[in-house]
Every structure is written in C-alpha cells, then in structure tokens.
Design a protein around this nucleic acid. Structure first.
Lengths: 97, 97
DNA sequence: TCTTTTACTTTGAATTTCAAAGTACTTTTA
DNA sequence: TAAAAGTACTTTGAAATTCAAAGTAAAAGA
C-alpha cells in the first residue's frame, strides 16, 4: 500500500452514497422513496447519486409497476458489496491511527 | 435525529480531508510535506483541502522557518477534534446498520 | 553562476453537487 | 367527471468543488 488512503474508495466519499450503500448492504432492496426518506435527500440529488453508483456497477436498478404506480428499486451488486466492504475496512484502519 | 446521515459531517466527506483529520488527531502537528506524503496528494490539491478545513476552523495553520526554509505546520483545533469525533461516531453507527 | 530542488500558492478548466422545474401519470375532492 | 393535488421520478443548468499545471520565491547543488 502506497499511502494511508489508498483503499478508501472515491465513489463512497460522499455521505449520501455512503448512506445508500449502508442501506443496500443490509437490505436486499430499497426503493427510491425509502432511500429518499432514510437519507433526507431531495429527488434530484438522490437520482444523481444512485446514477453515479450505477455507473460504477455498484448498484443495480429495476423498474417496475406496483399496482399502477411506477416503482424504482435499487440493490447492491456483488461488485458493490465487495468494494464497500473494502472501503469500510480501509476507513476502520484509518480511524484507528 | 431526523435521518441516518444527519451526524455525518459534510466537511469530512472527502477522503483527503478524512485523512488529514485522522493524521491530526493522533499527531499534535503535521507539516505540509508530511501530509502530502502520507496522503499521496498533489500540492495544489492538499492546499485546497487544508484551506477548506481551516475555513471551518477545524485545523489551524502556523507558518514559520526551519533554518532558512519555510515550514507550514497544521494542527487540529478543539472544534475540529470534537467535530471529527462526532463524525466518526456517526460513521460507526451507520456502518453497523 | 546557472540549474535544480524545495515548499508552497495561484489559477482556472473540469467535474460534481444540488434543487428547481419538468414529465407523466394516479388519486382525491367537489 | 372535471379540476386540483399528489406521487414518482427525470432533466437541467447554475453553483460549488476538485484538481493538477503553472507560478513564485528562496535554498541547495554543480
């Protein structure tokens, strides 16, 4: 390892993305509304953060209809879970000095 | 508490600022060169992150000369230490689900 | 003396963040 | 049953942030 923040993942730097991942590693799925409420994010804001995590292939999106209403459901991918685990370990290590 | 990321401090979102604070809570002082090497940051990049933390009054800067060379030394303020502690606790809580 | 290195600071282009406005419905109310 | 309000997002673009290249100024080396 070259320096002390090498294993800290840039993709999880932001608190909203950190929050999304924390939710998605303990819950198999979370929909837009649930994430929005848990994180206190605005719609547009949440959409761009989930999109950023999608782009990295850390989260997967599934669109469907529940009854007649659209529903967007997010889940963490295997890649995302692994990357997040590594990130959390790096943070823990960093914070222990 | 309104939502799960409320106590996560925006000022420490970035990995370089998280790294600066981790270094400064365990070391009474760190100079520019030391931070740069430990974090693997470029000069300009490090300067702007320390400036951001200064603006929040989380770190204090002291400029002096060591021999005939300029030396910039950073330390964490009381406010910074307290804010960081709170942040770390919030992260730990978040990551435990 | 001239070149290189050290220790930062300044600059501004590129990227990211954010909320307001927009879209396309569904549901409620009168 | 027509209008108003709500739901569930998406789009947009201005504002803020990030970043490294270039700049500055003095010291060290050749």
């Amino acid at each position: 390892m070259k320096n002390i923040i090498d294993n800290i993942n840039k993709a999880f730097d932001h608190r909203i993305r950190l929050g999304i991942m924390s939710i998605l590693v303990v819950n198999e799925f979370a929909d837009f509304k649930m994430l929005k409420e848990l994180l206190g994010a605005t719609d547009g804001n949440l959409a761009s953060h989930t999109k950023a995590l999608e782009k990295e292939e850390y989260v997967k999106v599934e669109k469907s209809f529940i009854g007649r209403k659209p529903n967007t459901r997010y889940s963490a991918t295997k890649k995302g879970r692994e990357a997040f685990k590594k990130h959390v370990e790096a943070i823990e290590k960093l914070l222990k000095g």
